[in-house]
Every structure is written in structure tokens, then in C-alpha cells.
Design a binder for these strands. Structure first.
Lengths: 233, 233
DNA sequence: ACCTGAACACCGTTCAAGT
DNA sequence: ACCTGAACACCGTTCAAGT
């Protein structure tokens, strides 16, 4: 009666699937971060003994790799492929804005694909590059050379990654840069320009705000446009 | 005689400094990565008992934070401030190229400031923003408005961070994308554009090569130039 | 004031069973 | 074939001393 709280009895064989474990792992990572996620936490979340996890995933590393696989699939699924006829500039702007939003909405995705050190399967890699191929093909249809198409996409992609990773790190840090204490980070006497920009709320010191992202993206799109027009008669 | 190898006897008091521990920590992190660095490893590298570390740093977190502080100082010291009279475009190009090189030369710096989850002290933050202030002031001298100066710098900075972090993650992953096996990552039948670009060695799938960095940087500088000229008569 | 070994809680992983 | 508790090595951290 007053014994330990009722442990769910032995699970029937076949009742525990890799997918169920992955679901729980994502839930745990959402709470504790991918770094903070322990195998015992996941086991508890599934309601199963720790060792049961190890039958489905031989190492924690395998589990994280599978999570990364799912993360790649989620990201690709969330980003619509280009519709023929869309102006290239409109598409790219939309694409990178969407990409940033997808990662911002779910930190686990960013951790798994951009700030953690596990890779994903060949299958996911194919999925990802198939997606890129579609975008490059779209840009070629718009008149880009294949090389310029790739490089242009790459520039926007890398910039967006920089913004997402920057913001993610700041948040993991509980960095004051993102909070109200950020005026304390400057020394007004020796940093008059930054201080006045910050006071008038026109910049954000972490360089990852909406306005800084938008400026960078526009500058990149402008640069791409210029690169294109100067190469064609 | 056949006993355990001679343990260095007790260290004299005052013989172990925080700096010495930091030196060892950087050495260990250089070998095992910041993630792989354990307090026992550091202690062994200094030739001291594990607990001795804890007198100088109350938690491993404090140690890593101090490492981050030093990393920020190293990065700032490695990047020369702008010389008045230099064309802005030349300076920014040089600055971001240098910045990428500094991080590429020492993975620990990138781990500590850009991919790990520890922040640094207020003092280091001041050092860093003092450096930014100098660059913004230089750009204002070149005719930028303060806001455009900040946003332009921010765009290049974020892009460069994206490249550095991208390359670092790939390397930590031992990703095949960086190696010779990278042709296997594509399916030629369904990815004709990427396949042919890759075969002619004109792109690198990870988007972090010299040529992709250079293209992105030029595109950003072009965009900045256009933004400036269109706003001025 | 500074350095140290013994000890503890916790995590990743393995083993030798259970059904 | 799948699930499980006991056990092990290892790491971060604390404690109660030593000099």
C-alpha cells in the first residue's frame, strides 16, 4: 500500500518502438536542450527502463543521430520548394525568412543540425541536396548560371545560419545582450556611436534581430542582382 | 621500486596559478575539443590532483567561462583596428577574411565563442564592443550613417560566423562532405546540376569553402555599396 | 592560504538474465 | 525477439583534512 508508486509492469514485446523513443527524446531535448538530454531522462519519459533504450539504439550517439535525421526531414518539409514563375528575389527572400523562422520556432532543430556535433544519414543528406537541387534549377530557369545559382543560394544560406546560430547561442547563454540589461554592456564615454544607436532602439547588440537580419538579406539580394546584371549584356 | 611511477610530491603553495590551469585547459581542449575536455584531463596536464583545480575554479563552468574570456581577448588582439584612410571596402574585406582565418587556425576559439554555451565576462564584452565601436566610427568617417555602418558590419560578421560555424561543425562530424567521399552524397540522376558542378570542382557541398566565402563576401560588399550610393545624391 | 585523497551522485554502457 | 535490474567505469563536485 505505502510501497513505491506503482511501476508500470513489463511492457509487452513490440510495444516499444524506435519512433516512440524518438518522440520522447524530442520532448526531453525541448525541455533540457540536446546537451542536457540524458538517456535516463528519455527512458523515464517513455516509462521504460534505461536499458530498454539500448536495445533500439546501441549508443546515445545513435539516438542523437536519428534525431538529427528526423530534424532534417522536418526542416525540408517545412520549406516549400520554389514555384515556377516566382521572381527569384521574392523566392529567396521568402525562403531564408522561412528558414530562420523554422529554426527559431524549435531550438532542438537548430541544436541538432547546426550547433551539435552529430551528423545525419546518407538518406537525409540526399533529401537535403535534392531540395537544394530544386532551388538551383529554379534559379537557373530565372537566368542564373549554375555556379552563380549555387553561390548565391549558399551566401544566403550561410548568412541565415549565422543569424540562427548567433541567436541560439545567446539564448543558451541567457546572455544579457538579449535582455534589458544590455545598455550596461556599453561604456557610453568610449562608445558614443553604439550607445546612441542602442538608446534609440535602432540596433540590437547581438546582431541577430529582425532588422539586422532583414538588412543583411537585402544587401545580399542586392549584391546578387548586381552580380547578375553586370555579367549579362 | 616496482611501485607506482613517481608522483610529483605536493606542490608548494602559490605554485599553481589560474593562468597555468588555463594554459593546460587550452592544450587539452585543442586535443579533445572543448566538449571532450574533462576536469581530470586538465588536472593531469598540469600535474596536479583533480581537486586542486576546484580551488581556483569553483565549477567547470567557471573554467570554461575564463577560457572564453581569454578567447575573446585573443580574437580581438588578432584583428587590427582600421587605419584611417583605408577604403572601407578594402578594410571590411580584409577584416572578415582575417576573422575567418583566426577562427580556422584555432578551433578552440570558435568552440568557445561561437558554438559553445558559455558566455564571457562584462570586461571582455566591453573589449569586444570597444573594437566594434572603432570599426563603426571608421565607417562613419567613410561616409556611412551610424545605422548603416552598424548594419553593414553586422551583415559581414554574421555571414562570416555562418561560414566558420558551418565548417567547424562539419569537421567535428568528420563529415564526408569535406572529404573525398563527397561525390557519393549526390544522386546524379536526380541532381544533375549539383553533380556537374561538383565534378568540375567548382563548388563544395558544405558551402564553406574559400570560393563560397569569397563570393558571399563580395556580394555583401556590393550590396552595401549599392545601399550607400542609392541613398546619397 | 593553498593543495590533497577519499567519497558521492550521476550518466553512459554492458551483462546476464528474464519472458 | 524484445524488455529488464544489477553492476561498472567515468566525470563533476564536495568534504574533511593536511601543510
Amino acid at each position: 500500500m505505502a510501497g513505491p508508486t506503482a511501476r508500470s509492469p513489463r511492457r509487452e514485446r513490440g510495444s516499444l518502438s524506435a519512433e516512440e523513443i524518438l518522440d520522447a527524446a524530442f520532448a526531453v531535448a525541448g525541455r533540457s536542450g540536446v546537451d542536457g538530454m540524458g538517456v535516463p531522462d528519455v527512458a523515464k519519459a517513455v516509462g521504460v527502463g534505461v536499458t530498454s533504450i539500448y536495445w533500439h539504439f546501441r549508443k546515445k550517439d545513435d539516438l542523437v543521430r536519428s534525431m538529427s535525421d528526423r530534424a532534417v526531414r522536418m526542416v525540408v518539409a517545412a520549406l516549400p520548394p520554389p514555384e515556377p514563375g516566382t521572381p527569384w528575389r521574392e523566392f529567396l527572400h521568402r525562403h531564408f525568412t522561412d528558414m530562420r523562422d523554422v529554426y527559431r520556432r524549435d531550438d532542438v532543430l537548430a541544436d541538432l543540425t547546426w550547433t551539435r556535433i552529430r551528423s545525419y544519414s546518407l538518406e537525409s543528406t540526399h533529401l537535403l541536396y535534392q531540395h537544394y537541387e530544386g532551388i538551383v534549377a529554379f534559379l537557373v530557369d530565372c537566368g542564373f548560371t549554375p555556379l552563380t545559382a549555387w553561390n548565391s543560394f549558399s551566401a544566403g544560406y550561410t548568412f541565415t545560419r549565422g543569424v540562427v546560430v548567433g541567436e541560439r547561442i545567446q539564448r543558451l547563454n541567457h546572455s544579457p545582450i538579449l535582455g534589458d540589461a544590455r545598455t550596461k554592456l556599453l561604456v557610453p564615454q568610449t562608445m558614443p556611436l553604439l550607445s546612441s544607436l542602442l538608446e534609440s532602439d535602432r540596433i540590437q547588440l547581438a546582431m541577430v534581430s529582425d532588422s539586422e537580419f532583414e538588412f543583411g538579406l537585402q544587401v545580399i539580394l542586392d549584391g546578387i542582382e548586381r552580380h547578375r546584371t553586370e555579367r549579362r549584356p
